[in-house]
Simulated scan of single mutants.
Amino acid sequence: MFSHVFPLHKILHLWDKLLLGDASFPLFVGLAILRQLRDTLLASGFNECILLFSDLPEVDMERCVNDSIEMYCSTPRSVTYRQHEYQPPPQSKSSEVNADLEMTPIPVSELQSEFCPRISAANLLELLDLQHIKYSRPKVIVVDIRSSEEYNRGAVPNSVNIPFSTVNISERILPTSPETAHLQNNKGKVIAIVGSRGPSMPQFAEVLVKSSFPRVCTLHRGIQVLRSANILVVPGAM
């Protein structure tokens, strides 16, 4: 893995991590390399980029390993879902999860039309940690883009409502509101876009990504899947 562009003494730094990580870890190694070369790549033409990738002697491998581990640990597992990846069986019946909350295969053409990854409902519920079992602070901000009327009939606890209709999609402009300010103040956290199935979630997510929000994802299968988890509440009761 990566041995066609790195000398052996640098590959040694990667081997242990590749063996200990799951099948998604090489992706994060590649992203860590791109992060280091970002400025050079943006300033280069296509042919220069191809030549650069044929030999990578200047990559700081220790930094690459550290960056890839940081990204791997902070990325929800469902974001790197692959249809044919081996999934170990549950350790016990108590660890089994409602199949409706898990990821399902997505056509490549549909993925290519979207600007950010999807997160499963099971992964979202884990990050929400509504019982405060794992985290002392929320790890994710849920943005509900349905209309105010729909939102007020039942929403994810502690979510914020920014209706899709209030966003200038063509100009990529978010409305001025306390909810938008809340997002700006929490740019480092995972932001999960929740709404009805259709084009509105990926379109809203694209606005956030192009507004320099670093960790944006959309809820796979939309908010309807959360009804089976029985977590939606009336906002006034949150």
Rank of each mutant, 00 (worst) to 15 (best):
Y151H: 09
A121Q: 13
N185R: 03
K189M: 05
D67E: 09
P202H: 00
M61P: 03
G30S: 03
Q112Y: 13
V65M: 13
N185W: 01
I50T: 11
F164M: 10
V142A: 09
S92A: 06
S74C: 03
Q224E: 12
I11S: 05
E206A: 01
S78R: 01
L18R: 05
R221K: 14
P7N: 01
F115G: 14
Q36I: 05
K189W: 05
R35W: 13
I11L: 05
S159R: 02
G45W: 13
P107A: 04
L18G: 03
T166W: 10
H132P: 08
D39E: 13
L19F: 03
F115Q: 11
H4L: 06
R137W: 11
M238N: 15
N186R: 02
T40V: 03
V140R: 07
V65E: 14
S78V: 04
M1D: 01
V194P: 01
Q87N: 13
E102F: 00
S148K: 14
M238E: 15
A122V: 01
D39N: 07
Q83I: 08
L34V: 07
R146L: 04
S78T: 04
N123E: 11
Q224N: 13
N66E: 14
I141R: 09
G45L: 10
L183D: 02
P105M: 06
V160Y: 05
